[in-house]
Nucleic acid binder design. Structure first.
Length: 204
DNA sequence: CTTTGGATCGTCT
DNA sequence: GACGATCCAAAGG
């Protein structure tokens, strides 16, 4: 076993994340998703960076202008996967939170490879180092194999092609907190959380 | 190391 | 017709 693999923390037997913890507001849920596992087929990543997006009141949110065909899964029940195409190129993945119809979601901005890293490398040919495989919202979807067609899946079902697991590793007691990255509207709220010192957090 | 601009296309104005 | 919840290669210091 290589040294790289030994650096990856391993928790207890993973179980699916319960939908009830996702039913609160995205700002409350987001930091709780740190250290949860995002599972796509045989690829698994540990969530190390997230951003909260509010409903219609948050000008930075896709839900700000109400429900459309693109963002309709944002308005589904908590635990739904919302995927969208960014800049015509990259797929990004969100966890829907709050109550159905509210349009709240948490954007997964970075994960740390836990399983299937060999399959991730050819999916991310531009990544020169392993830390570059999944250190961005578009990068992690490419590495894990999350695609636009996965939009609307239930993350709270272990039989879903994409789901979310908990292996007993708690969120950090003191997550790093900052403003959200890459937005121009409503940039002030400190709605980005990451695991302090984790090498897979996206870079500024 | 940092900065800059191009890619690329669905969505909404 | 404009604009991204991004990424990357190239150029410059």
């Amino acid at each position: 076993m290589g040294a790289r693999v030994e650096l990856i923390a391993v928790g207890s037997q993973p179980h699916v994340v319960d939908r009830s913890i996702l039913a609160a507001s995205s700002v409350d849920v987001a930091p709780l998703l740190l250290n949860k596992l995002l599972v796509c087929a045989d690829q698994i990543g540990r969530i190390v960076e997230v951003e909260a997006y509010g409903g219609v009141d948050d000008a930075a949110s896709h839900a700000h202008r109400g429900r459309t065909e693109r963002n309709s899964s944002m308005f589904a029940r908590a635990g739904t996967l919302y995927c969208y195409l960014s800049h015509g190129i990259h797929t990004c993945a969100n966890v829907v939170t709050g109550g159905a119809g509210e349009g709240q979601a948490v954007l997964v901005r970075a994960v740390e490879p836990v399983e299937g890293i060999e399959a991730m490398r050819p999916r991310r040919p531009a990544a020169r180092r392993d830390v570059d495989l999944t250190n961005g919202p578009g990068k992690l979807c490419a590495a894990l194999g999350i695609e636009l067609s996965h939009d609307g899946l239930d993350l709270c079902s272990p039989r879903s092609p994409v789901w979310m697991a908990d292996d007993g590793i708690a969120p950090p007691r003191r997550p790093q907190r900052s403003r959200r990255i890459g937005i121009t509207k409503n940039p002030e709220p400190m709605w980005r959380w990451s695991i302090p010192g984790n090498p897979c957090v996206s870079r500024r």
